[in-house]
Design a protein around this nucleic acid. Structure first.
Lengths: 251, 251
DNA sequence: TCAATAACGATCAAATATAATCATTTTTAT
DNA sequence: ATAAAAATGATTATATTTGATCGTTATTGA
């Protein structure tokens, strides 16, 4: 087993275990500790992991767009569940909007087999997720890239969205309550969400239960905007009831 | 059994086993180890597998956009040279267009320290390359993603480009000759190139010497379109002279 | 703080793989 | 049919990888 092969195995191990010490690795791979050290040194130089005394730690996500994707591999079970449920609403032949939230992103793996499909998105990770998906056409919204969110926002993006129409829009929010409706942290995201909602027939809001009942600072849309709320099973009965009085549909 | 046949078998074996050493392969295919090495060398050059000491490994699944980036790490010395020279034309504060060719992409690493900088591009790998570059604002052209080229083409993209203006445009081409001017393989790319050229003051064509004197099938622009040609040092004196008669400037 | 322990880096030697060169065979073109 | 070109195999010199030793440095616990 050469270096390349070990390198891959080491990174694979770290993917799962977060961290590991030299001797453990040496035993695991049946190779001397000093060689493992050399390997770790090289890998650390490539910034594929972080060297510690006596071992190594998983590197923080860093790659351009896939970083986001990797991060979401450890998305909470709640988000994953929502992603799956939301994806079930999509049918072959649909045209859909997807915004740039991490919850919406969890739909991606579940969408890959729904073909043909046309996705209009401002999210670079979403676009990246479908680069290898035959039968899925991605329309990326243009404009200035917001590196923080790995997405595109702004007036141009909104104009771009408005020139399209889709059957369904899948959007996220930072907060949702019966009293204040939908709230966001940033006007940028709120603008995109509103635009997508305006150009779609059905608007599905993906929102895990931890955000329900909480308000962020910018109130940008009423509950009546959305066709249905896709959330997880940990939503309390009381909260569900309150929202139902506002005629919110649940998935 | 010829090379093509072995090549297929080697890749087939690696599909299953992930990795294998030279001697094993030699035994398996009944051929000498040195020939296997030569085969592996070629396959590695095509990036169909990864060469290791003593064997080979299956090529890793290529990441969405960075795949392109990785590939270019082994870009020919010629292309790298061109990328460096072209990047030297960019000054802090500039707004530039960059198209989606692999030659243009080689400019990226050299641009990271030229800040502030504003880049308008239809290339996803270019956008990805600057995700971590503070001080560089990327404007991504919107529209349908062409997965093959990892770029965005089409009427919407062209309209997007036309709404901007930049001091400099860096574009590529598939062929260039004194007789036929600039030629391309695809109308998609030609449209983008033309649009960028139309919205920029100075148009720099990046083109390695192997493409000079050759024509692709679509003739899309005259040599007079470009401000200067950025190429490598392997360009023959005769070719240079011919182009100079057409008033082409060299960098 | 200090000593004990463990990890680290540098250097060396052995094993192995590779590149380079040349000879042989096979294929291709004329 | 013959020469030229390409592919293959063998041999040798070079380069790489690996593991061991030893002196140095960092961490841990009293």
């Amino acid at each position: 087993m050469g270096f390349q092969e070990r390198k891959r195995k080491i990174l694979k191990i770290l993917e799962k275990t977060e961290s590991m010490d030299v001797q453990e690795m040496a035993d695991e791979l049946g190779i001397s500790a000093i060689t493992i050290r050399r390997d770790l040194q090289q890998l650390a130089a490539e910034e594929l992991l972080i060297r510690t005394h006596g071992g190594a730690m998983k590197a923080p996500p860093q790659h351009p767009f896939t970083a986001f994707a990797d991060k979401e591999q450890v998305a909470s079970a709640r988000k994953k569940y929502i992603g799956k449920r939301a994806a079930a609403l999509v049918k072959p032949g649909d045209t859909i909007f997807m915004d740039c939230g991490s919850t919406v992103f969890t739909m991606c793996p579940h969408l890959k087999n729904i073909t043909p499909l046309r996705i209009i998105t401002n999210s670079l990770p979403v676009a990246a997720a479908f680069m290898d998906a035959a039968g899925i056409q991605v329309n990326l919204i243009g404009g200035e890239i917001d590196k923080e969110r790995k997405a595109i926002h702004g007036d141009r993006a909104i104009a771009h969205i408005k020139s399209y129409h889709a059957a369904k829009a899948f959007v996220g929010t930072d907060g949702l309550s019966a009293k204040r409706g939908l709230t966001a942290i940033s006007e940028k995201e709120a603008g995109i969400t509103t635009a997508m909602a305006g150009s779609a027939d059905h608007i599905y809001l993906l929102c895990d239960s931890s955000k329900i009942g909480k308000d962020s600072y910018l109130k940008f849309a009423p509950l009546s905007l959305i066709t249905a709320l896709v959330t997880d099973q940990e939503l309390s009965a009381a909260q569900a009831a309150t929202l139902r009085t506002k005629k919110v549909n649940f998935i």
